[in-house]
Write a protein that binds this DNA or RNA. Structure first.
Length: 283
DNA sequence: CTCCAGGGGTTCC
DNA sequence: GGAACCCATGGA
């Protein structure tokens, strides 16, 4: 077991269940998860993180995964003092953090996430691991490798019941396995270039690409925007993204998104949609 | 039966 | 460029 002190107010429940990671499960004494073939149970006592099932030699791995090398206290301080409304967002859920998740897993899970909801995303990811991952001695399965998935066709993934996304997953696996899309190379690129490279994968658009940049590759400035987030940003920050976010907009966005989700209504334009919809043929 | 879920590709103008 | 429509699932 490993313990890591001074985690900057890390809140596991929020961080592991906010829609950036999809394999953590709440258990009686904390959270159980599998990351790169390592099965662990984690919990907090005060500001200390306990990682049961982890080897001491993997300390750096877990510090990196939870991004505990980043000074969140200082970061929050910077956000809060830089902008009043941003401070409200931070205070709403200060313990939420951005993880550094495995590259191929993150790529796949966010491809699966498109036009989908979290419970089903989790279910599909779980089926993917059970069918194509390696069985672990502690139980559970690792996330499958790109090489393994690259041998398959979209039809082979029918068991996933992922719909059209199966085809996208195969393309992602092929491009990662071939080295056409390479994690190390991406990390060495400027953000926009890395984003463009990711978007050469079929089914990876600006949103999914930004999620991979942010949630896996530590481009802390990546800012995943969908229609909802654009609307929220306009309402909360009509003059544009606060300067205090610069360089860490993606991390700031986690606070903003959570705040917006709680305080802004999701559907405000249903009436317009209904009145403009076409007449359907009556047969 | 309809709507929706942290999208993206394709096809139009 | 951007708007409309399609894509498969499954839950509400």
């Amino acid at each position: 077991m490993i313990c890591v002190e001074n985690c900057g107010g890390l809140d596991l429940a929020v961080t592991l269940d906010c829609g950036q990671a999809f394999r953590w499960k709440s258990v009686s004494n904390g959270w159980h998860g599998i990351v790169e073939g390592r099965a662990v149970t984690v919990w907090m006592e005060g500001d200390t993180l306990f990682i049961d099932g982890a080897e001491e030699s993997d300390r750096d791995f877990w510090v990196r995964y939870f991004a505990l090398d980043l000074d969140y206290l200082a970061l929050r301080q910077r956000f809060c003092s830089g902008n009043k409304k941003l401070a409200l967002c931070v205070q709403a859920q200060p313990g939420i953090r951005v993880l550094r998740q495995p590259f191929f897993e993150t790529l796949c899970t966010f491809i699966i996430s498109q036009n989908n909801n979290i419970p089903r995303i989790r279910a599909i990811v779980e089926r993917l691991c059970e069918h194509l991952g390696e069985a672990l001695p502690q139980g559970g399965y690792s996330f499958p490798t790109a090489e393994k998935m690259a041998e398959l066709t979209a039809q082979d993934l029918a068991f996933l019941r992922a719909g059209w996304r199966a085809e996208y997953l195969i393309d992602a696996a092929k491009k990662v396995a071939s080295g056409e899309v390479d994690e190390t190379a991406l990390c060495a690129m400027p953000m926009q270039q890395a984003k463009d490279r990711l978007m050469t994968i079929k089914g990876v658009g600006p949103k999914v690409a930004d999620c991979v940049l942010l949630f896996s590759l530590s481009f802390w400035d990546a800012f995943p925007m969908d229609v909802w987030m654009k609307k929220a940003m306009q309402q909360l920050f009509p003059r544009g993204i606060p300067v205090a976010c610069r360089g860490y907009a993606g991390i700031a966005q986690q606070y903003i998104f959570d705040y917006a989700r709680k305080n802004l209504s999701r559907s405000s334009e249903k009436a317009t949609k209904k009145s403009t919809q076409k007449c359907k043929p009556t047969n």
